[in-house]
Simulated assay, not measured.
Amino acid sequence: MIDSLIIRRRSVRKYSPDPVSEEILETCLDAARMAPSACNSQPWFFHVCRSEKAKNAVADAMNSGIYGRGLNRFVQEAPVIVAVETLKREKTAPWLAGMVRNVRYETMDVAIAVDHLTLKAAELGLGTCWIGWFNEMAVRAALGLPKTSRLDVMLTVGWPDDRPRPKKRKDRENIRRYL
């Protein structure tokens, strides 16, 4: 079952206008909530934009400035836009370990949580698309967040209105080495 889900999950850039219920969104957010994180710090917060006013403000902010060259115009059509805030570490151990290794564990933790969310969404028939190219400063302002907050990823969510394309992936020989 997990194999077919992993294969089925894809980036969707064309959505049906049909709304996504709060109940379904909560199911997806619960999947994200269950994700592992360094020292169980759970450094994520999900700003779920469903109202037309919030979605339009966030979509306009995402695509403003140099980010508005057409790459992510499809976000305007998504029934839901999720801004994922990466929270500051409350626990010392992962922060210190990250400093020593020069690794941002909180960013990895957020990515795992978002992946859990996208896989649950795929299981429920929803489409999602990770977005990393957006005007973070403008989105923070649209959401009323302080300048110190961090938004590393945005996500669109909705019912797909397109046909899946075949996945093009590297051959196994090009992605691994056994020792």
Rank of each mutant, 00 (worst) to 15 (best):
His116Asn: 10
Arg163Trp: 01
Leu96Thr: 02
Ala35Asp: 13
Asn102Trp: 01
Ile81Val: 13
Ile6Ala: 12
Arg169Gln: 11
Arg33Leu: 08
Tyr15Met: 00
Trp95Glu: 10
Ala142Arg: 02
Gly158His: 07
Glu52Tyr: 04
Val12Asp: 03
Lys147Val: 12
Pro166Ala: 10
Ile175Asn: 03
Pro43Tyr: 00
Asp3Leu: 11
Ala54Leu: 10
Gly144Val: 10
Ala141Ile: 02
Glu26Phe: 13
Asn72Pro: 03
Asp162Gly: 11
Arg163Met: 09
Met62Val: 06
Asp109Ile: 06
Thr128Met: 11
Val48Arg: 08
Trp130Ile: 13
Gly65Lys: 04
Pro146His: 08
Lys14Val: 15
Ala121Lys: 05
Met1Tyr: 02
Ser21Asn: 03
Ser149Lys: 14
Leu143Val: 14
Pro160Met: 06
Arg13Leu: 08
Ala61Arg: 06
Pro164Ile: 02
Ser4Glu: 15
Asn72Glu: 06
Ala35Trp: 00
Gly98Asn: 01
Val12Ala: 05
Ile175Ala: 07
Ala54Arg: 13
Met62Tyr: 00
Val100Gly: 04
Asn102Gln: 04
Ile112His: 05
Asp60Phe: 02
Met34Glu: 11
Ala59Ile: 00
Thr156Pro: 10
Ala35Gln: 09
Arg50Pro: 00
Arg163Leu: 09
Val157Thr: 05
Val12Tyr: 01
Pro19Ala: 15
Asn102Val: 01
Ile24Asp: 11
Ala61Phe: 08
Asn56Arg: 15
Glu90Ala: 05
Leu151His: 07
Ile7Lys: 14
Pro94Asn: 05
Phe46Gly: 04
Arg33Gly: 02
Leu87Met: 15
Asp18His: 11
Pro17Ser: 13
Ala138Val: 07
Thr156Gln: 13
Arg163Thr: 08
Leu119Gln: 07
Ile6Phe: 10
Leu151Gln: 11
His116Glu: 03
Met34Asp: 09
Lys120His: 14
Ile7Ala: 13
Met1Asn: 01
Ala59Trp: 01
Tyr67Trp: 09
Arg104Cys: 14
Glu173Phe: 10
Arg140Cys: 14
Thr118Asp: 10
Val110Leu: 15
Glu52Met: 11
Asn72Met: 03
Asn174Tyr: 02
Glu136Gln: 11
Met1Lys: 01
Thr92Asp: 05
Tyr15Phe: 15
Phe46Pro: 04
Trp130Ser: 04
Met137Trp: 09
Ser37Trp: 06
Arg13Lys: 15
Leu71Ala: 12
Ala54Glu: 11
Phe46Asn: 06
Arg176Glu: 15
Lys170Gly: 04
Leu155Pro: 08
Val110His: 08
Glu106Asn: 14
Arg89Ala: 13
Ile66Cys: 03
Ser37Phe: 04
Ala38Val: 04
Ala138Gly: 07
Lys88Phe: 07
Ser21Ile: 00
Arg150Gly: 04
Met99Glu: 08
Ile2Lys: 06
Gly144Ser: 12
Gly158Ser: 06
Val75Tyr: 11
Gln42Gly: 01
